[in-house]
Design a protein around this nucleic acid. Structure first.
Lengths: 230, 230
DNA sequence: TAGATTGTTAATCGATTAACAATC
DNA sequence: TAGATTGTTAATCGATTAACAATC
């Protein structure tokens, strides 16, 4: 990744907010595929998401050449490519830590499995919860983390503990070998460089909404055509 | 907003990703306040969130002058200012539409109330759900939307219906007078300019995590110190 | 006063959009 | 071939960071 490779003149630096849009493209393409469409142009795909056609082409170009001039993109092929790029062409065994209201809520949500994120282990360190069986899974104590990460091949974890425990739990997860954290707590987590964190912060998003509504008279902000991308 | 006002030389254009950071500042300040701290500098606040000190000052400067050179910001005062700016200095009666797994999950989540977003009405149009009482609230049919919006003073709604109904429900909500939508479905919603939409897309965020973990060897991406902001 | 830190302007950096030759 | 649409370079736009005079 440091020096240019031989046949790979410029491996292209990892882009930035492009990945989030790739997910949107993937979903939109899946919708078009279900409708029986076979090809799509960058401008059609862009318009369906409120994005510029050049942006669609440029985003995809970071990862390769997937289109055909004059024709556009073959939907089925592009779906396959995007799944591979995003890493969702495989199952991701995932742990859920913290079984309060939010944790239980997420556990009941079926949307994860559709995207191949499988909640396979639950953790809590409340002795009243450890041993309970919820949605067919037994709650384990956080002390069992190291061996469970190994035995289940866990690489991702969702953190739904109270804010004040979040950093400690994150440290334990990282120490046990977890490589990616979905952080549902309102806390800035500090982790080593090789661990990824995505923050899902409902209060930030609600406050953003309050701000927008509060500061919109009749027509002003960017809300119009393009929904905020996460 | 077009021509400069008299005493208001440049009302400053509404900024962009600044609002999300304002929420982060607010929360961090609340934490510092609980610890008994009275003042804080832009560099201290920035560091606690992995942000640049100049960015903190510039973000705040969009909305006014809140600091004192040589001293920094008085925490209690800045909290008050930020709450007003964000519009979270009041209650926001909010509707929840769609009582599947995710909807029920959100309903049980106590974090909303803390930020003064009060779920006061539930809607569904499944006849088996209408009339049910969940968490002390009775599920209404979507047909009751217009009069309920008026009687409860609803301005925000969370959309937790299946993706294929999302646009139709959004249209109904907008027609009934809702001004802000928190969209939990994987759908790009098209709404009038004066309505705000914030998308909370768990699959996009999970896929982002999968991508990062998938493409991180030992030290590469930006995960290090700064958690992704939303 | 000397030290610290703001608010703000200018410089830098990155991301989006426009434009167009290449090509199916 | 003519029309459409790509991949990519150049132009534009916006956001972040550095620098510094003003000031508590």
């Amino acid at each position: 990744m440091r020096e240019p490779q031989h046949d790979n003149p410029s491996p292209k630096p990892a882009p930035k907010a492009v990945v989030g849009r790739l997910s949107l493209y993937l979903r939109q393409l899946e919708t078009f595929a279900r409708q029986g469409r076979e090809t799509i142009s960058s401008s059609q795909l862009g318009k369906s998401l409120g994005l510029n056609d050049a942006q669609v082409r440029k985003d995809l170009a970071y990862f390769g050449q997937f289109g055909q001039p004059g024709l556009g993109y073959r939907i089925a092929d592009l779906i396959t490519e995007l799944r591979t790029i995003l890493g969702v062409d495989r199952d991701w065994p995932t742990a859920l830590v913290g079984l309060g209201n939010l944790g239980r809520a997420l556990l009941g949500y079926k949307g994860f499995r559709v995207r191949r994120f499988h909640l396979v282990t639950l953790f809590d360190n409340d002795p009243r919860k450890v041993g309970q069986c919820i949605e067919g899974l037994t709650v384990k104590h956080l002390d069992d983390l190291p061996q469970t990460v190994a035995s289940e091949g866990l690489r991702l974890a969702m953190i739904c503990v109270p804010a004040e425990s979040a950093q400690r739990v994150a440290d334990q997860l990282v120490a046990a070998g977890i490589r990616g954290l979905l952080n549902f707590t309102p806390t800035a987590l500090f982790v080593p460089q090789d661990v990824s964190v995505v923050a899902v912060d409902l209060s930030v998003q609600l406050e953003h909404l309050a701000y927008s509504v509060h500061n919109t008279q009749s027509a002003s902000r960017e809300a119009g055509d393009i929904p905020a991308v996460s």
